Amino acid sequence: MGENHYGEISIPKILIDEEIMAQITKDFCLNEIDVFLTSDVDSYESNGVISYSDAMASGGCFDELESLLKQRRIPFDRYSSESYDYPPERVYFRPDREEGKEEICIPLDYDGETFIQVCYLQPLLTLSPLQMQVELQNLINKHDPQVTPLAEYVMQNPSLMSNEQGDDQDGLY
């Protein structure tokens, strides 16, 4: 994924400490004086989640920041738009999932919607209606799994708040 295209990453605000903020600043060139005048970098907050986007992210990803978040076991969501060689994708990292399954990567169609390839659907045509329904639901669960939204996830996992942070820290952004 060597070319640059749109990427957006969302992180719970309360979990952004100085180390993570330093990486965000580096990845998004936030210490540059003209960053918001001359680039396609943006950020916004909604429901306690900070989202950073860059229209020229390398591969639509934020490799160093994502690596740090995984290492620190901090949940995040990432969306990467399509490029010439790659379809868009949505990535969810939830550290409490079974080891090896913490990251969910969902390829999207060029409209940004999940899809199931025909080669997975064709074998269902030979099944009984009840079997077809069960197998179709299994395919949907595999290709478009239900993922708890970040704001809810943080509320449901209070142990994240003690993830190497002091009790008096509200997070930085």
Results as ranks from 00 to 15, higher is better:
residue 170 D to W: 00
residue 74 I to H: 00
residue 146 Q to V: 09
residue 56 M to R: 14
residue 129 P to T: 08
residue 170 D to R: 08
residue 65 L to D: 05
residue 119 C to V: 11
residue 147 V to W: 01
residue 59 G to R: 00
residue 158 P to V: 07
residue 89 E to F: 02
residue 119 C to H: 12
residue 17 D to I: 03
residue 43 S to F: 15
residue 102 E to Y: 08
residue 14 I to W: 00
residue 5 H to R: 05
residue 125 L to H: 04
residue 127 L to K: 10
residue 47 N to M: 11
residue 92 Y to C: 09
residue 61 C to I: 11
residue 34 D to W: 12
residue 33 I to T: 10
residue 160 L to P: 05
residue 24 I to R: 07
residue 75 P to L: 06
residue 123 P to I: 05
residue 122 Q to K: 06
residue 66 E to H: 02
residue 97 R to H: 13
residue 98 E to G: 04
residue 167 D to I: 11
residue 81 S to T: 03
residue 141 N to Q: 13
residue 158 P to K: 01
residue 45 E to Q: 13
residue 144 D to Y: 12
residue 136 L to F: 15
residue 103 E to K: 12
residue 34 D to M: 14
residue 151 A to G: 01
residue 110 Y to N: 09
residue 2 G to S: 14
residue 98 E to V: 13
residue 92 Y to N: 09
residue 158 P to G: 03
residue 105 C to W: 05
residue 37 L to D: 15
residue 31 N to K: 15
residue 23 Q to T: 04
residue 120 Y to G: 02
residue 130 L to S: 13
residue 6 Y to F: 09
residue 116 I to Q: 06
residue 1 M to F: 06
residue 158 P to H: 06
residue 72 R to E: 12
residue 61 C to R: 11
residue 71 Q to N: 07
residue 138 N to R: 09
residue 153 Y to S: 05
residue 173 Y to A: 15
residue 65 L to W: 06
residue 42 D to H: 10
residue 24 I to W: 05
residue 74 I to M: 01
residue 140 I to T: 12
residue 115 F to Y: 15
residue 120 Y to C: 06
residue 149 P to M: 07
residue 122 Q to V: 11
residue 42 D to G: 14
residue 85 D to N: 10
residue 93 F to K: 04
residue 124 L to N: 03
residue 20 I to K: 02
residue 139 L to S: 04
residue 154 V to C: 02
residue 121 L to H: 04
residue 32 E to N: 14
residue 121 L to P: 00
